[in-house]
């Protein structure tokens, strides 16, 4: 799967397809065993268990946990049920956040990578600065920004006021302010990771292509369009998918910064699943929600991959 997603692009055209030979057929499994044990016990078993839970009215504090078949799923598609409204409202919030956050998370890190790829004194320091917030935990990021974005004592509104801009935006209790805040905080926090990946890919674009473009008299912009972007295309699908998944799983920021406010407008799907399953003890409902969300993510990821692959093929 990944072999096709992330094709080898070695300058010598050498294919890195695995070529195992020799050695006992057991060898790969010996290597794999430690990981597979962990993976089975702490991923596969819980996932399968989660599926099983989703078929039950599952309050795990109680001995009685009746089997309900696909009722929990059916409820998610029945507008009069107790889970329909909260779930789809939260899916909508997740959708809004994803649509708003993925483009800046794809574009801004690229701009930073383009600047940082040039060699200049202190470059490492600048790189480190842009990556630094990524090492913080969401708990720290959220409490820090809740403070900065406070519409009364916060720095952000204070400086907006100094600049003559509206200084009374309620960043955590009103939309669209809350969406702007959540997207901005997420970009600030995670931009460094995407930037580093872009940086790596940029370093890999053969210099000859730029030389050739320059000989043809191409402007910087035209070089970007005709050399840089095509050179980045293979990793764009990778960055797009991991960013998409990360955004679709957003939880901590809204949980700790806005508490889903206003109302439940910024309460994302993961947030709702947490509320339903872990606070409300309704793990059957929560599991069903999780798998519907997973299903949507699988479809979206597939679409992204296919879209990028087709473009490549068209080009070829």
């Amino acid at each position: 799967m990944t072999a096709t997603i992330l094709p080898t692009r070695r300058p010598d055209g050498f294919s890195a397809r695995p070529r195992g030979r020799r050695g006992s057929p057991l060898t790969p499994w010996l290597f794999l065993t430690p990981y597979l044990v962990l993976f089975t016990v702490f991923v596969i078993v819980p996932v399968v268990f989660g599926m099983w839970i989703s078929l039950h009215a599952w309050d795990f504090t109680l001995p009685r946990r009746p089997f309900v078949g696909f009722d929990n799923y059916a409820k998610l598609f029945d507008p009069s049920s107790s889970t329909f409204e909260p779930f789809w409202a939260s899916m909508r919030a997740t959708g809004i956040f994803t649509v708003l956050s993925v483009p800046p998370l794809l574009i801004i890190p690229l701009a930073i990578a383009l600047i940082m790829r040039a060699n200049f004194p202190g470059r490492n320091l600048f790189r480190a600065i842009y990556f630094a917030p990524y090492v913080l935990g969401v708990a720290v990021v959220a409490v820090l920004w809740r403070y900065l974005l406070d519409n009364n004592i916060g720095l952000v509104n204070y400086y907006l006021g100094q600049l003559g801009l509206p200084d009374d935006i309620a960043w955590t209790t009103s939309t669209p302010g809350a969406w702007v805040a959540l997207v901005w905080v997420t970009v600030w926090w995670t931009l460094g990771f995407n930037a580093v990946i872009y940086l790596a890919a940029l370093q890999d674009i053969p210099a000859e292509l730029y030389e050739a473009a320059k000989v043809d008299g191409a402007s910087a912009w035209s070089q970007f369009i005709h050399v840089t972007l095509p050179g980045l295309r293979p990793i764009l699908s990778f960055i797009a998918v991991i960013t998409l998944i990360a955004s679709a799983n957003m939880f901590g920021q809204s949980y700790l910064m806005t508490q889903g406010a206003p109302g439940r407008e910024t309460r994302t799907a993961i947030y709702q699943i947490t509320e339903t399953g872990l606070r409300g003890f309704r793990m059957g409902d929560a599991s069903a929600m999780s798998f519907v969300l997973t299903f949507v993510l699988v479809i979206l990821s597939a679409i992204v991959f296919i879209a990028f692959r087709q473009k490549r093929e068209e080009r070829a």
């Binding site: 819980p46 799983n249 939880f251």
Partner: peptide
């Protein structure tokens, strides 16, 4: 790779039991 798509939150309770 497929499990990367599963929201980690649903693993919490089953993992706790394990």
């Amino acid at each position: 790779i497929g499990t990367l798509l599963v929201p980690p939150v649903i693993l919490i309770v089953p993992s706790f039991l394990v």
